[in-house]
């Protein structure tokens, strides 16, 4: 299993290939479309991360100290970024997730997706992923 840092570098390389924002966003849209849907039974209120506009459902399972995430969103752009987060964090150890420095979102030029406009649940999503990890790590 590659480390969180290695996977982030890989994503940066992927995004380096794109010449303009349009290609970048089209790639994100594709990632969003390709992300396997979360099992319907996990699409419940308790798993809902409330942003102001797009909803994100996050489910976490532990497998001998590692955490497997699955997630979904009703907005495709959000789902694309969710797919990237899952690629980076899912399957990693609880300890590594809790201490992960997730700088790739800024570096791939999507920092407006993390702005404080309350427009999406992304920041809350990262926080929630880390909270799961911290809880299991203890």
């Amino acid at each position: 299993m590659r480390t969180i840092k290695e996977i982030q570098e890989e994503i940066l390389e992927d995004f380096d290939m794109f010449e303009d924002w349009m290609q970048k966003y089209e790639y994100l849209i594709d990632l969003g479309k390709e992300l396997p849907s979360i099992d319907e039974k996990y699409k419940i209120e308790e798993n809902l991360i409330k942003g102001c506009q797009s909803r994100v459902w996050l489910h976490a399972e532990e497998n001998s100290g590692n955490i497997i995430f699955s997630a979904d969103s009703d907005a495709i752009m959000t789902k694309g970024i969710v797919a990237l987060l899952i690629r980076v964090l899912s399957g990693q150890s609880a300890n590594d997730i809790a201490h992960a420095d997730l700088d790739f979102i800024n570096k791939i030029g999507l920092k407006e997706q993390l702005s404080a406009t309350r427009a999406n649940g992304l920041l809350s999503m990262i926080k929630q992923m880390k909270l799961y990890a911290i809880a299991i790590d203890k």
Binding site: W21, M22, Y25, C52, Q53, S54, D74, A75, I76, M77, T78, E112, Q113, A119, N120
Partner: peptide, 20 residues
């Protein structure tokens, strides 16, 4: 299409609308 996706992409094209 979710309105949020419309708003995000229009913004990249210089068009400011509100979504939500």
């Amino acid at each position: 299409i979710h309105p949020y996706d419309i708003g995000v992409l229009l913004d990249k094209m210089g068009v400011a609308i509100r979504t939500g």
